[in-house]
């Protein structure tokens, strides 16, 4: 089966900054793909190039075996649906009026508009001005517009960023529904849980490069020898923090680390379990010496966040967020 998206050696430069440094993708139809990475990783640039909103500096991008040329533009725009990172609407238009505008652009019936309003649970808001919608409702409206014409390929750029947990959960329910319809969906996110729960295939992206890819199991399997240690403490003064940083940096050949100050925990991601006991004992001693009051220690298999931390030295997003 021909891939629905084919990207070869995609590069994008803004002045002297390379946002994408050579991306290759091959996405078969009917797949739910997540592009997972921290802010500034190049996710939105990648998506906007796929959506035809930006032009690549180098490389080949094909959707439905067609490149983004003037001749193919109408065909491709009719085939894809997109939900932008931050969709803004004309303030003094109601939800239904906005939907009617796009129904005219995509040439879909009024009954389809009502069906989608219903599907996205916007029925009680259909006569509300968009300026009076909450963040979650606006995002649902953006999703409603993106699926109005039943596109075969759907691009969702961080649809849950900035939403409260309940609103995020509502969007996830909608995305789960989309997934069941067997459409190809490309989702960018910096939420590990979102990628883990929704996707069939994951690309981990950092600084314009893909650092890992595969199904969730494939990625975790590939790094199954990794182990995460999480030390929980109750208080840490600034001087302790500075000393701790120095100590952690000294041992960087053994592990990658991340300090979660807000959650009062120190995470170490080890590449292998060989020296596990030795490292634990060693670090308990070091932390005691720093007069840090430790009250808990977790040891677990790595999740996507840990893999990402190990591969890039940076965190995707604080897990509790």
């Amino acid at each position: 089966m021909n891939p629905i998206i084919e990207v070869k050696n995609l590069k994008k430069r803004f002045k002297d900054f390379w946002a994408l440094k050579g991306i290759d993708l091959e996405i078969p139809p009917g797949t739910f793909v997540s592009v997972l990475g921290p802010n500034g990783a190049g996710k939105t640039t990648l998506l906007e190039i796929l959506e035809g909103l930006q032009k690549p500096t180098e490389g080949v991008v094909k959707l439905f075996q067609r490149e983004w040329t003037k001749e193919n533009e109408k065909f491709l725009k009719q085939k894809i649906g997109l939900c932008l990172q931050e969709t803004r609407f004309i303030d003094k238009l109601t939800v239904r009026e906005i939907m009617m505008v796009f129904s005219s652009i995509y040439d879909v019936s009024k009954s389809r508009v009502d069906e989608v309003i219903d599907l996205l649970n916007l029925n009680d808001k259909k006569d509300t001005y968009t300026e009076n919608l909450s963040g979650g409702q606006k995002q649902r409206l953006a999703l409603a517009i993106s699926i109005l014409h039943e596109p075969e390929l759907l691009f969702l750029d961080e649809p849950t960023t900035g939403l409260d947990p309940e609103a995020r959960k509502n969007i996830w329910d909608v995305l789960m529904y989309f997934k069941k319809t067997n459409k190809t969906i490309i989702l960018t996110t910096h939420y590990m849980e979102e990628a883990q729960n929704l996707s069939d295939y994951i690309y981990l992206i950092n600084q314009g490069k893909i650092v890992a890819q595969g199904t969730l199991n494939q990625i975790l399997q590939q790094y199954s020898k990794f182990v995460s240690l999480v030390f929980h403490y109750d208080q840490m003064a600034l001087s302790q923090k500075q000393k701790l940083h120095r100590l952690l940096q000294k041992d960087q050949e053994l592990f990658q680390f991340q300090l979660f100050e807000h959650e009062k925990k120190i995470k170490l991601v080890l590449k292998e379990t060989k020296q596990l006991m030795e490292i634990i004992e060693n670090w308990i001693a070091k932390l005691k010496k720093l007069r840090l009051n430790l009250y808990d220690l977790e040891i677990h298999r790595p999740n996507l966040n840990d893999v990402f931390l190990y591969l890039t030295g940076t965190n995707l997003k604080q897990e509790s967020e």
């Binding site: 909103l53 725009k77 997109l82 932008l84 803004r88 004309i90 652009i105």
Partner: peptide, 13 residues
Amino acid sequence: IKKLLKIFSASPV
């Protein structure tokens, strides 16, 4: 300025 054009540009308008 209000970024209202982007959503139209992404559609086959």
